[in-house]
């Protein structure tokens, strides 16, 4: 049984592993069949593709992902706190409304977004992606953080209040530190979703504001036969989300099910 599990895991993971390794091979080694595990690793591909402009697209991805994650937290955490701590008659409606915006297909709004951005000259501009990714991640933040805030025992906060701490102080000094692990995994998941987003990016950006996935798609049409170079670009595109994903895999279920399944 365990052996079977190992075999399945290796087969299933193989495409990722192969891609990560091929990035370090010479073009000649890269196309050898069967793919060799033993080869003399080279950084040549990375040097070449980094100099050929990948750096700019990587930068775009980093900027837009970090800023949109930060702003999604700034907007979403207070809302989550409000929904978790205070009884509102319609809090359930508000929550489901947030969830519904996350489920609505982007295809339903892409045309007006394009026309509007064209009108205000923000096509192919990072600001556009920043606003969209922030809006995309706010519902995720609200749902996840709400479920973390709800786990904070009320007595802790009440005793702080009895001690004379203001609401704001209670929040920053007591509540926030208690939910920090949850806050971190929420931030990581927002980061991953924004980092991997493709539909909006490919529809609304071109040469200036393109992010890594968009660059990846155009890189392939030009140089799809150079496996080693392609794999090194792909690795750069994938590794940030993959690493963060590994750290946050335990919270993935909670994030994807909007806190419904704890995981």
């Amino acid at each position: 049984m365990t052996l079977l599990t190992y075999v399945m895991a290796v087969v299933y993971f193989y495409p990722v592993l192969w891609m990560l390794m091929t990035g370090f091979k010479s073009e000649g080694d890269a196309v050898k069949m069967p793919p060799s595990l033993l080869f003399s690793p080279t950084m040549e591909n990375y040097r070449l593709i980094w100099d050929s402009g990948v750096a700019a697209f990587f930068g775009n991805s980093v900027i837009v992902t970090l800023t949109s994650t930060l702003f999604a937290l700034l907007l979403g955490v207070p809302a989550a706190y409000g929904l978790a701590m205070f009884k509102l008659k319609r809090s359930e409606d508000v929550l489901f409304w947030f969830m519904s915006t996350k489920f609505l297909p982007v295809a339903g709004i892409i045309i007006p977004l394009y026309m509007l951005l064209k009108e205000i000259r923000l096509l192919d501009n990072l600001w556009a992606l920043f606003f969209l990714y922030t809006a995309m991640n706010v519902p995720l933040v609200v749902w996840m953080m709400r479920s973390f805030f709800k786990e904070v025992p009320l007595e802790v906060m009440e005793s702080a209040r009895v001690d004379g701490a203001s609401d704001t102080r209670t929040f920053f000094q007591i509540t926030l530190p208690l939910v920090r692990p949850g806050l971190i995994s929420t931030a990581l998941l927002s980061f991953i979703f924004a980092w991997n987003e493709f539909f909006l990016a490919v529809s609304l950006t071109a040469t200036n504001a393109a992010t890594m996935p968009v660059h990846m798609a155009s890189f392939m049409t030009q140089q799809g036969l150079f496996w080693a170079k392609m794999s090194s670009v792909a690795s750069i595109a994938v590794v940030p989300a993959l690493l963060l994903g590994w750290f946050t895999q335990k919270q993935l279920v909670r994030g994807m099910t909007m806190g419904a399944v704890k995981g």
């Binding site: 993971f13 495409p15 980092w195 392609m230 994938v238």
Partner: peptide, 28 residues
């Protein structure tokens, strides 16, 4: 033995961006 690593391997494809997943499948 090695449950953590196996789990990590099994969740990995979820974090691979669709653009890259498609390209790796198509070309390699």
């Amino acid at each position: 033995f090695g449950k953590g690593i196996v789990r990590t391997m099994l969740v990995s494809p979820f974090f691979i961006m669709p653009a890259v997943a498609g390209i790796v499948w198509k070309t390699m």
